[in-house]
């Protein structure tokens, strides 16, 4: 197991990447990206069983699907730091002719991406398809997916949630990033999601709640626990309570940084809170 302090170094560097990427083009989604940094760093560097290199079919390795594609900055940074493509390419985020589109896509052939996402609510269906494909291929590796909590307002998710349980897709671990925020404000004010744990459970999922969704140790343990619950006839859901903008004090406790880039001064302040660990790109 990677030591927690090694993971923490990746987390801090990923935060810097996110902040610098969105600052450079004055666009993108830092809030949700920072909220999921610990999770994605732990997932790719600790939980997932990955092969060297990238091929679309991903046989005999774990797969991950990002459904809430707007948190592309954290996804791109984690993929680059994991070696899927050169970290220097983070410099091209959202620029013309870049493989790092505003929302992730397979269209430009960026290694690590297996489906386009951005229009919300579609990722769980795709993850289920990939999980069914693994079963047909006799491949015992797992499929992971990540979803925003606000994203669950899209009805397609509930088609997928119903299907996965009804068809015992038990090689799937879907995580909900419960940061309680969406563009127009707190999720409970926009369209309340109610008791998500009970909702997933009543649909037939095995659910774990992680109260400290930005605590690396808690995440690593939860992923381990989730993995141990696969193969038992139920899809597994992790409900991760996260803090949008985590690691940058002025971006926390607000939905204001959902889709806004920091100014020069704000960037300097934010980077000051997250000193370089692995080297900036």
């Amino acid at each position: 197991m990677a030591k927690l302090d090694e993971l923490q170094d990746i987390v801090v560097q990923t935060r810097r990447d996110i902040l610098r990427m969105v600052h450079k083009v004055n666009s993108g989604h830092p809030g949700g990206s920072l909220g999921c940094t610990e999770f994605l760093v732990a997932l790719y560097n600790e939980a997932m069983d990955l092969k060297e290199g990238f091929d679309m079919d991903g046989k005999d390795e774990d797969l991950f699907f990002l459904s809430n594609g707007h948190i592309s900055p954290v996804f791109y940074s984690v993929l680059a730091r994991k070696g899927y493509f050169p970290v220097e390419e983070l410099n091209t985020f959202r620029l013309l002719n870049s493989r790092l589109q505003g929302h992730p896509t397979t269209h430009e052939g960026l290694p690590g991406i297996r489906v386009a996402s951005g229009s919300l609510g579609q990722g769980m269906s795709v993850a289920i398809g990939a999980a069914l494909g693994k079963k047909l291929n006799g491949d015992d590796k797992l499929v992971y997916s990540l979803h925003g909590d606000g994203e669950l307002q899209e009805g397609q998710n509930w088609e997928a949630i119903m299907y996965a349980a009804g068809n015992k897709v038990d090689n799937l671990i879907s995580t909900v990033d419960r940061n309680g925020q969406q563009i127009d404000g707190p999720t409970e004010e926009i369209l309340p999601l109610g008791n998500l744990k009970e909702k997933f459970e009543v649909f037939g999922w095995d659910v774990l709640e992680v109260a400290e969704g930005n605590n690396l140790e808690a995440i690593v343990n939860a992923l381990k626990e989730a993995k141990s619950r696969t193969g038992k006839g139920k899809p597994v859901c992790i409900i991760l309570d996260t803090m949008m903008g985590n690691g940058v004090d002025f971006m926390m406790h607000t939905h204001a940084w959902h889709g806004k880039a920091p100014s020069d001064e704000q960037l300097e302040n934010a980077l000051g809170q997250n000193p370089e660990t692995l080297g900036d790109y």
Binding site: F65, A127, A130
Partner: peptide, 13 residues
């Protein structure tokens, strides 16, 4: 909607 997504996922593999 779920059918189209699952179909897309099944191509992977």
């Amino acid at each position: 909607a779920n059918m189209m997504g699952i179909a897309a996922g099944l191509t992977i593999g």
